[in-house]
Design a protein around this nucleic acid. Structure first.
Lengths: 265, 265
DNA sequence: TATAAAGGTGAATCCGCAC
DNA sequence: AGTGCGGATTCACCTTTAT
């Protein structure tokens, strides 16, 4: 198991090769199964460049569920008893994912709300602006109580008050958003590094091994390197891998707060 | 079917007596199945008076699921095609409830985050402060697109900007919290009226029939009366019913904004 | 160079009717 | 069921262009 590397291959097949009880932290950003059917236009008639990737297409709930059971089962197997797992999703998929995680025996520690400061409005006025995504933070099971949680660090990070389960963070835009050679966004769902920074700081220690089975353009790897953790990524698309490698290699500066003292254990 | 009344009886049995396609809006605050095992103490050694009621006890996920399938099925049957349903829950149950609703064919319109301004902190420092509950707002199915949504009203309510799926509202405390004869809180999970006000204003019209299958101390009835909607409540415990009746009968003043013009249809 | 205006865009289950 | 068309509909933030 080579650390600080990106494995090219199918998520489930590659997860199967990872030894039992060997991973400290897992962050998973699986396909959401958005089920988009029609094009959406803004009031000024421009078309919304939505998620239309092949990797987000599933034939049915049942097919999506089967897929999630397989990768989540492997995640549980390879997670250390002191480890924990984060899974991000939207209302399209998080209720299916959450249900499966409970059935597999994961123990929910928090449901974190990523409150987006700049979400896309609802142009048609048919719903409330969908302004959140949900992160499920779970331990391996109810009986495993020694998961890492740097409570004091996060209290300091939050200006002296205990951090809550609502995280107000902007979308990944501007300089941070990885562009392809055509100048357009390379990945349709790149996450902001601040999101990864918070969960890595709070629920892992320096030197820990962080696994991301849906690595994409490597936000998890970038944040891990800046915070002095190791990472293992699994990604199916070579294009994403090459962009991720370039991105992570370019990192020389660390988050200035990376030397914050971790909670004693 | 008598409107503006509280039915005393078992939720599922009483739901079965309600005719098909007869309800405009459902608000359901089901048991959360919190699975609290041990007493919880604050740092100063006082005991936290949590939810420990008989009605919140289920033997297993499966038993809880079976219960939810039954009452949610009935809700779908009695809902008008132009109607919609709200279900509130926490991370203990909302993933099971959401999964079941999807399986039954409900169509999620929003997952609303109730962001509590004054949540109970995590005393032990073992998790992030759990500062939210989740409301699922669903239409009867993907094909039913004429659900009521007063978009313009809510935009006005929100100071001119489209309302988002994050609702910052305080816990139900102080004067609003119904007390029993012993001066203690009468119901362990009473919801703030502001929460009900928002969802009733946004997704129903004056004169609509609103059903609450877990009526408790009648927050839904109180908000419905103030906003000139009709209500039907179902509640198992007579003590809650008498408190709810007293509460609703006492209402003479309406929310000052109750005369806001609804969206034209 | 500084400021202002204009343009682009984000994990989106986003219209309703007539033919 | 599919197509076509009239009409109603958006917020925060960032980049580019204009003044």
């Amino acid at each position: 198991m080579e650390i600080n590397s990106i494995i090219h291959g199918d998520c489930i097949e590659e997860l199967k090769k990872i030894p039992d009880d060997s991973i400290d932290l897992i962050f998973a950003d699986p396909p959401y199964n958005m089920q988009l059917k029609n094009a959406l236009y803004r009031p000024n008639n421009t078309k919304v460049d939505g998620v239309n990737d092949e990797w987000d297409k599933f034939a049915s709930f049942s097919e999506y569920d089967d897929f999630c059971v397989l990768w989540l089962k492997e995640c549980k197997r390879i997670l250390k008893n002191t480890g924990s797992i984060w899974v991000i999703g939207s209302y399209h998929n998080i209720f299916r994912v959450g249900n499966i995680m409970l059935n597999l025996g994961f123990w929910i520690l928090n449901d974190i709300t990523w409150h987006k400061t700049n979400p896309m409005p609802n142009f048609m006025g048919t719903r409330f602006t969908n302004a959140t995504e949900t992160l499920l933070w779970c331990s391996k099971g109810e009986q495993f109580k020694k998961y890492t949680f740097n409570h004091k660090m996060m209290k300091k990070y939050n200006g002296g008050k205990q951090m809550t389960s609502v995280w107000k963070i902007g979308l990944c835009t501007g300089e941070e958003r990885i562009k392809g050679e055509d100048g357009k966004k390379a990945h349709s769902t790149q996450k902001p590094e601040e999101l990864l920074k918070r969960l890595i700081l709070s629920t892992s220690k320096q030197g820990d091994i962080i696994l991301d089975p849906f690595f994409g353009t490597g936000t998890t790897g970038a944040a891990a390197k800046k915070l002095k953790r190791s990472y293992i990524g699994i990604e199916k698309e070579e294009n994403y891998i090459s962009l991720a490698k370039k991105r992570i290699d370019a990192i020389e500066n660390f988050f200035p707060e990376a030397d914050w003292k971790e909670d004693e254990r």
